[in-house]
Nucleic acid binder design. Structure first.
Length: 689
RNA sequence: GCCACCGUAGCUCAGUGGUAGAGCACACCCUUGGUAAGGGUGAGGUCGAGGGUUCAAUCCCCUUCGGUGGCUCCA
């Protein structure tokens, strides 16, 4: 006698067990038609799930009452589409074994093991899609049936897919007492797949779908296990939604920093120089320099001291720090000098042997620095310190080199050589909390100044079950609490992620997404009790005894490369005035006004600003178009009328209109103010109606 | 590093087993035009590199370098 409570609080009572589909039908034919699934006591379920007991029931439809797309519905739809795709592929590629096919935020994928040499290519998508369309047109019901664990496992053993057997065994370990299959149609006659579900009622409910890409993956994400082929796709309830999504993806791609970097000539990566090695061209260098100047001002206010250190250091330094050999895989190989090399060669030393000798410290070499901390530590250690001197804050735009896997490198966001806006703070125990706050204030200042609000904060804590961390538990407790309270003080949500701490201490990371949805860590603040011990750092306390300082590693931008990459996408290439490589372009209407235009140009340059003149042969329309495409913040159009009245006719990027005339001296005053205040006094905003 | 796809002029891209084309950009000429493309002429390519098949390769095959999407990794 189930009593079913609906989301509006109303209760429906049934004499016997029923289904969500029946409840939907009883409420109304429209709902019955729209429903894709149900939430029974909060658990996403098939519409056909038998309801035998009292429960709370919510029907899941593609769009919720307020017209928003329902993510649960979309997720069921996509997972169901993954089944349809798997069936199509297994039909076209007999012998293909299925592994795992979940829904994603933007679609779905299915991992598959193809018979060797039989994997499809992107050219085969169309054929697969035709097959899928057929299955959808047949509108076959997704039919669930359950077997006991034993019966299910023996069925899987007979079928012989180790992947599915493994899935079933994991379900067993997870506490399942039965195994479920979903047939697309009728069990025993139609295609079926071991699956926990839930699914939409029938294939016909998949309104629109598309196979999007192909990738390889590892079974269970473990590179020592089987290599699988992952086929990605997406699906929506309706065709217009799919089209809108595809269009949105296209639009996002136009903001891609790799594309804009080329169009706007911000940076260049040259295969002759090397993969992942960024060449900052003059225009991009301006952006970076402005950011460095900006943060540099904040650093001076916070009492940082600037240092410079070289790009390499002795291997022994990194043996002490622990970077070598623990992270050797991520480093460029050591540099060995000529004499040592000749000597080794004359001894017939093999490469393998050389590696071993480097490892054991029998051959000395230099390392391209993977991190700046060891150099900064040696600066700190170069003179004695009193407790009165602390905190010592050493800052450097330090360039580091890491051997990233070739397949992972791309654009500015993942590179092999990058410059961190790095600093290391050597602080007393009692200063940790306040200094952390200071570091976070810097990150906050950056995000606020640049108008970036779409970021996520991650507090990386130690894994309580692991013993891979150094330092005393009491110190960790203090450090973690300092990180937590510092993160709390930011006033934005953050996630605590156990196991994400560095081995020497907890950290706070700032994570943003790029235009294609990938997450990147930008700023980071880390508390470190370990390196001071490894380098035996000390200061003299008020008690005239030696004490161990605590280190804070922090880089509010993260790396200049990655940050600028993300920033290009954030602004879609249209930088605010203070960052823009070219801030103003002066456009004389014709040669008759060129003299005055040059005068305007000189006056802007006298403000220390970046301006050019385009006195080319083209008509003004064409030159305005060129300047707009270059995303230049201000265009000063000057013709004979302007020259006579000593005004400029202004245009601002993003406003497709003449903003009117402004007296030259006014223009210069307000332009300079906007630049100096980094946009808080905006000329454009003042002129915009 | 792994899998798939891609690599043709500075950029965006056509194209073909018989040694290449467009648009934009560039140069020059005409035009001196008041707010998103004025007109003309011209220059520009070892078709990423190496090897193979073929009478003949930019095109087919192999290798390699680089790019893209994922996987893995990211101290």
């Amino acid at each position: 006698m189930p009593r079913i409570t609906l989301p509006d609080g109303s209760i429906r009572q049934y004499d016997a067990a029923t289904t969500a589909a029946q409840v939907a039908a009883d409420i109304g034919p429209g709902l019955a038609k729209a429903a894709l699934g149900a939430k029974i006591n909060g658990k996403l379920s098939d519409l056909s799930t038998l309801i035998e007991h009292d429960c709370a029931l919510a029907l899941v439809t593609p769009k919720s009452r307020d017209g928003q797309v329902d993510t649960d519905a979309l997720s069921m739809l996509r997972h169901s589409c993954a089944h349809v795709m798997a069936e199509a592929i297994q039909k076209l590629y007999p012998g293909t074994m299925l592994v795992y096919g979940p829904a994603l935020d933007t679609g779905f994928y299915y991992d598959m093991a193809f018979a060797s040499g039989r994997a499809p290519s992107t050219d085969d998508f169309a054929a697969i899609e035709v097959e899928m369309a057929q299955i959808i047109a047949e509108n076959r019901p997704f039919t669930r049936y359950d077997l006991t664990l034993d019966a299910g496992l023996s069925k899987l053993q007979t079928e012989g897919s180790k992947f599915k057997i493994d899935n079933a065994e994991r379900a067993k370990e997870g506490g399942s007492t039965t195994l479920s299959w979903y047939a697309t149609g009728s069990p025993s006659t139609n295609w079926e797949d071991l699956c926990r579900g839930p699914h939409i009622p029938s294939t016909g409910r998949i309104g629109a779908f598309k196979i999007t890409s192909l990738a390889s993956s590892y079974w269970k994400g473990d590179e020592t296990l089987d290599r699988l082929t992952r086929v990605y796709g997406t699906a929506f309830a309706t065709k217009p939604e799919l089209e809108a999504y595809l269009k949105q993806v296209e639009e996002a791609k136009k903001r891609d920093h790799r594309l804009l970097g080329k169009q706007l000539r911000l940076f260049h990566i040259d295969e002759m120089v090397g993969q992942g090695l960024v060449l900052w061209t003059p225009r991009g260098a301006v952006v970076r320099q402005e950011l460095q100047t900006f943060i540099g001002e904040a650093l001076r206010e916070q009492g940082y001291q600037q240092v410079f250190t070289p790009h390499i250091g002795k291997l022994e330094l990194y043996r002490t720090s622990g970077h070598y050999p623990y992270y050797r895989e991520s480093q460029y190989p050591p540099i060995v000098d000529h004499d040592a090399m000749s000597k080794l060669a004359s001894e017939g030393c093999s490469c393998g042997e050389l590696a071993n000798r480097l490892e054991r410290g029998e051959v000395e070499g230099y390392l391209l620095k993977p991190m700046n901390c060891p150099h900064h530590i040696r600066i700190f250690a170069s003179e004695p310190h009193s407790y009165r001197d602390l905190p010592v804050r050493l800052a450097e735009f330090g360039t580091v080199y890491r051997w990233e896997q070739s397949g992972e490198i791309g654009g500015l966001t993942r590179v092999r050589g990058f410059t961190q806006d790095d600093a290391h703070l050597f602080v007393r125990e009692d200063q940790v909390s306040a200094e952390l706050q200071g570091c976070l204030a810097l990150v906050k200042l950056i995000f606020a100044t640049l108008g970036m609000s779409d970021y996520r904060v991650r507090v990386g804590l130690r894994d309580p079950t692991s013993d891979k961390y150094v330092g005393e538990s009491a110190n960790w407790d203090k450090a973690e609490e300092a990180c937590r309270s510092a993160a709390r003080s930011l006033g934005v949500p953050f996630s605590e992620e156990p196991g994400e701490a560095a081995f020497y201490g907890p950290k706070i990371d700032f994570v943003v997404r790029d235009v294609i949805g990938r997450s990147w860590q930008l700023g980071t603040v880390q508390v470190d009790y370990n390196l001071p011990i490894r380098f035996d750092l000390s200061y003299i306390g008020a008690d005239n005894k030696e004490h161990r300082p605590v280190m804070i590693h922090r880089a509010p931008f993260g790396s200049m490369e990655r940050f600028v990459g993300v920033l290009i996408e954030h602004f879609a290439g249209a930088f605010p005035l203070w960052l823009a490589p070219e801030q103003v372009r002066v456009l004389p209407i014709s040669e008759k006004s060129e003299e005055y235009a040059k005068e305007v140009l000189a006056a802007i340059k006298a403000l220390g600003m970046r301006a050019t003149i385009d006195a080319g042969n083209e008509r003004i329309q064409a030159r305005i178009r060129d300047a707009s495409e270059a995303k230049i913040p201000y265009l000063a159009v000057v013709g004979p009328r302007d020259a006579q009245q000593r005004v400029v006719s202004l245009r601002a990027f993003g406003i497709d209109a003449n903003l009117g005339e402004l007296p030259l001296d006014q223009f210069l005053l307000r332009l300079g103010a906007e630049y100096r205040t980094r946009g808080s006094e905006s000329l454009k905003a003042a002129l915009t109606p």
